[in-house]
Design a binder for these strands. Structure first.
Lengths: 180, 180
DNA sequence: ATAACCATGTAAATGGTTACATGATTAG
DNA sequence: CTAATCATGTAACCATTTACATGGTTAT
């Protein structure tokens, strides 16, 4: 699934500007399984407009820079449905943190301690954030997807909490207590 | 963390060929947080050799194509340690499956049923696989990392199992029972 | 014999990030 | 007055994927 398809998904929920789509990706119900920056969203929208999956209208609204509001077309909805029917590509996960954890024996204990704290805090914030996603009037499929994110984040936080000592015992005092 | 650094990590565990490194990534204890194909591993190794982080020797071993066995150098170990001390980039997750699930109301029930079965089977296989990773003599940090993968996969499988009905109720009979 | 596995690499194309470039509005 | 937020886009660069190209070995 590329950024174009993700934008179609975002627009299926309602008209939006590129800026709003980015916020939906990073704060909304997509945040745990998709990410994209402006540098990929704006070109993706332009391409969708070019091939008729999306229309755009200028909304010179307030005084600020003109909002470019995008709407999905019938062809766009068909493209989305067709993409959804295709066998999904396997999940792609890349975690620097787990890579670091794997080699904890090369790191000083205080750095491990910092990383553990940061990680647990991040998961707690992310889970709290997903819990606060507005679920009123949300179809069951969205609720499923959001619930999945919460469940996985909570499981990860719980695992780290319960097994932190495994990492702590790995860290060696081989390096000056604070690295880099 | 790029493919180069991941290769340094792989070689930190012992000498290996590009082919073996790929197997380590896809079947070994890295499988749940990193992936790379030959097309990125071979160029990464060549670059590591060029800048002195890795040495390579030809092993015309058996009768088959010559194995190119790579070893990490002291400079390579230092580069690895330095990369590990840097603040880890946030995890990157992209899931086509969750995207599909989010829009289950656009899909026919039998397709949802198939996707649910596939997904649970995949998680069960992946968890089983990680459980079978050889942990004899494995330092605690590696055990932590592998255990993390198992915990998250199990939590995901359990969530899907428990909430499948949410997705089923979303699917509509709007399309011919089998899609595309 | 046929498929799967071992083994190495390159080249083109894709997809995405980061940096650049700009500017108004609102809240502290 | 300063920072954050709203708002749009382009261009250069980077990383990665996919397809190509090759060939021996082992197990069914």
């Amino acid at each position: 699934m590329d950024v174009r398809t993700a934008c179609l998904g975002a627009l299926h929920r309602g008209d939006a500007t590129g800026y709003e789509i980015k916020k939906l990706f990073e704060d909304g119900p997509f945040s745990h399984f998709f990410a994209a920056g402006f540098g990929s969203i704006y070109p993706a929208l332009a391409q969708l407009v070019r091939n008729g999956h999306v229309t755009v209208r200028d909304d010179p609204d307030d005084g600020r820079s003109t909002r470019r509001v995008h709407s999905i077309t019938t062809a766009g909805r068909e493209a989305l449905a067709s993409a959804l029917r295709a066998p999904p590509a396997p999940d792609r996960v890349r975690s620097d943190w787990l890579f670091m954890a794997f080699f904890a024996d090369l790191l000083p204990p205080d750095l491990i301690e910092t990383r553990l704290r940061e990680r647990i805090a991040w998961f707690e914030a992310a889970a709290t954030h997903l819990r606060q996603v507005d679920r009123t009037g949300m179809p069951p499929a969205c609720a499923f997807s959001v619930g999945y994110g919460i469940a996985v984040y909570e499981a990860a936080a719980a695992y780290i909490d319960a097994n932190a000592d495994l990492l702590r015992s790995a860290a060696t005092a081989d390096a000056p207590t604070s690295g880099q």
